[in-house]
């Protein structure tokens, strides 16, 4: 079982990112996925959390995730507060939407393995959202698929087409660019 916790802000598509992952895992056909939002009173800009579990068998745990394997940060301004890192497994992975390098970002995360993806830059270059509120979820999903192997790019693209309310081609392209970016940087790091 892989347990993933998403942190973003209302309006960025954080909950949809978890749902896209579930769609991609279904299409990839190798595991089950359960995507669950942490709902407060929904407001644009407020911190939002979502959870996803991916497992070979039926997923029976229907609770929040307290000890994630992966923490995904859609909005770098949420920062690396203790709240965000809380419970992350020692061998865990942090995937951050940032233009900084992994080395720079890693300084803030002592134990964890840190992967950076410039999801904001990718989204804006494709006209997804605005500078004040970029829609980074599809790029982040591309990066997540690349670093975890939970879905391949074909499954992810089909999942995105089935899930996004508008601009399907731009969203697919955002995911594809982030996917390729993370595969390359991973290879470089390895």
């Amino acid at each position: 079982m892989v347990e993933i916790r998403f942190h973003g802000r209302g309006g960025q598509g954080t909950v949809l990112a978890a749902k896209i992952l579930a769609e991609a895992v279904l299409r990839f056909g190798q595991a089950e996925c359960l995507a669950m939002p942490e709902f407060g009173v929904e407001r644009r800009g407020a911190p939002v959390t979502a959870y996803a579990r991916v497992s070979k068998g039926k997923i029976r745990l229907r609770t929040r995730i307290y000890e994630p394997d992966v923490v995904v940060i859609l909005d770098p301004t949420i920062g690396q507060s203790a709240e965000i890192a809380k419970g992350l497994k020692p061998s865990g992975l942090v995937l951050i939407n940032t233009e900084h390098s992994a080395q720079e970002a890693a300084a803030a995360w002592s134990e964890a393995r840190v992967i950076c993806v410039p999801a904001r830059a990718i989204a804006l270059s494709l006209g997804l959202g605005s500078a004040a509120s970029p829609i980074v979820n599809t790029a982040v999903c591309g990066a997540l698929a690349a670093v975890t192997g939970l879905a391949d790019s074909a499954a992810l693209e089909a999942a995105i087409r089935a899930s996004v309310p508008e601009k399907p081609e731009q969203n697919v392209e955002a995911a594809r660019r982030a996917y390729e970016y993370c595969r390359e940087t991973n290879h470089a790091a390895a």
């Binding site: 749902k19 995507a35 709902f39």
Partner: peptide, 12 residues
């Protein structure tokens, strides 16, 4: 069924 825990949870 349970609000949010099931109502808003996605699964196949």
């Amino acid at each position: 069924f349970d609000g949010f825990v099931l109502s808003h949870t996605y699964e196949a």
